[in-house]
């Protein structure tokens, strides 16, 4: 999965980024390089087509890791999120959150986690997903 950055409608920052970027889009380190597990191919291929203006500040948070560990057998969020942002780490016994690929749909705050254990906000203004078609 690659996160692309830069668009003609960006502010100056993006303009500065764009100069050395091939074909108007700069490929950022994927979530795997940031220490996130690689999601399975189905969504990775799809997300590779989406532009994101990446924020360093996460906008998603698991409220209580104990609930994931002890109460939630199905790890519902790993299925309900259409961007596979949530991944169950069987080693560390916790959900990892690849917020960089979030499509900001709101599923995880609207019953996508039946335990209401995810705090979802929108990214700061100007950051996050940037649809070219929509």
């Amino acid at each position: 999965m690659s996160l692309k950055y830069g668009d003609e409608n960006q502010g100056e920052e993006a303009g500065a980024e764009k100069k050395d970027a091939p074909a108007g889009a700069r490929v950022l380190p994927g979530p795997e390089d940031l220490g996130f597990p690689q999601p399975p191919p189905a969504v990775a291929n799809k997300l590779g087509l989406v532009k994101f203006n990446l924020d360093r500040e996460p906008h998603l948070r698991i409220k209580d890791a104990e609930v994931c560990r002890r109460r939630c057998r199905q790890k519902f969020c790993t299925h309900s999120c259409p961007a596979q942002v949530y991944h169950w780490e069987s080693e560390g016994k916790k959900i990892s959150v690849a917020y960089e690929g979030c499509l900001e749909c709101g599923t995880c705050r609207s019953g996508g986690c039946p335990y209401d254990n995810i705090e979802m906000r929108y990214p700061r203004g100007g950051y996050g997903v940037q649809y070219r078609f929509g």
Binding site: V43, N45, L47, L49, P82, L103, Y131
Partner: peptide, 30 residues
């Protein structure tokens, strides 16, 4: 998963014929 349903949907023979050879440009969710 919603995208699993979408992927199956795209394989339905009458639909597949309509989108054959088309190349993905964007994925979105709402």
């Amino acid at each position: 998963e919603a995208y699993t349903i979408l992927d199956k949907f795209k394989q339905q023979p009458q639909l597949r014929r309509l989108i054959q050879g088309a190349s993905p440009r964007e994925y979105s969710a709402h």
